[in-house]
Design a protein around this nucleic acid. Sequence first.
DNA 1: ATAGATGCAAAGAGTTTGCATAGGT
DNA 2: ACCTATGCAAACTCTTTGCATCTAT
Lengths: 126, 126
Amino acid sequence: MERSTRQSAAIRAALAAAARPLSPAEVLDAARAEVAALGMATVYRTLKALVDEGAIQIVSLPGEPPRYESSAHGHHHHFRCDACGKVFDVPGCPGDLGDLAPPGFVVDRHEITLYGRCSGCVAPRS
Amino acid sequence: MERSTRQSAAIRAALAAAARPLSPAEVLDAARAEVAALGMATVYRTLKALVDEGAIQIVSLPGEPPRYESSAHGHHHHFRCDACGKVFDVPGCPGDLGDLAPPGFVVDRHEITLYGRCSGCVAPRS
DNA sequence: ATAGATGCAAAGAGTTTGCATAGGT
DNA sequence: ACCTATGCAAACTCTTTGCATCTAT
């Protein structure tokens, strides 16, 4: 059975509140605001449980630690700034991409990551 | 200076020959066909050097080890089979996705990963 | 009261680094 | 001959697991 503990509530809250995917370390930091004695192991265990039940998703980018985000944020994609390294949520979606796949392949879902420079880094940091 | 050694040649060859991204362990295996005494450290060092010089790219998918592939394969995307876990190259590309990003963001490049079932796993493995 | 969740610390897996040696130039 | 890349093994980092304790039910 699932038990509702302050720890897992804090972790869920941290992810739900974030507007961008969080790394395990960031989740730990954020959740410690509510539960000071929170341990890393609990973060990992809870994240794994949340992934299994589909409440959150893993976002993984080359050369970076995995990040987690709430599935409740809906279908969206990500943008990584090559200058500052931050990862942002991108609202749009080009739609069904099933026809890209080779014949015989069935596409259930897709992930798009854009790379470039975010508004902050594009601007002539005046 | 760059020195041409059998080891790095074997690693480059393994990546160039592969029709799909390889994990470090797979690269090691493949390259050992040519250089039996090849060490893991050399694989990592060479992969890093190749990434730095832009010859290969990292492909990273959630919950899986990083994979590397030759940049020479041209622009394409990836398909991961949820059934067998293999990652395939996908030739097509929907084109420029710059308009997906929020205003002020500059998109240089994009990555698309499709998820579903590959032809082998879709077919009633008759 | 019971059983699952937690926290600490140790164990694992994957990756990186130090240093003596082999091998390319 | 010189000097870089290699190979081995130790060091690191990130993640998972064991176990006694705590706590929600």
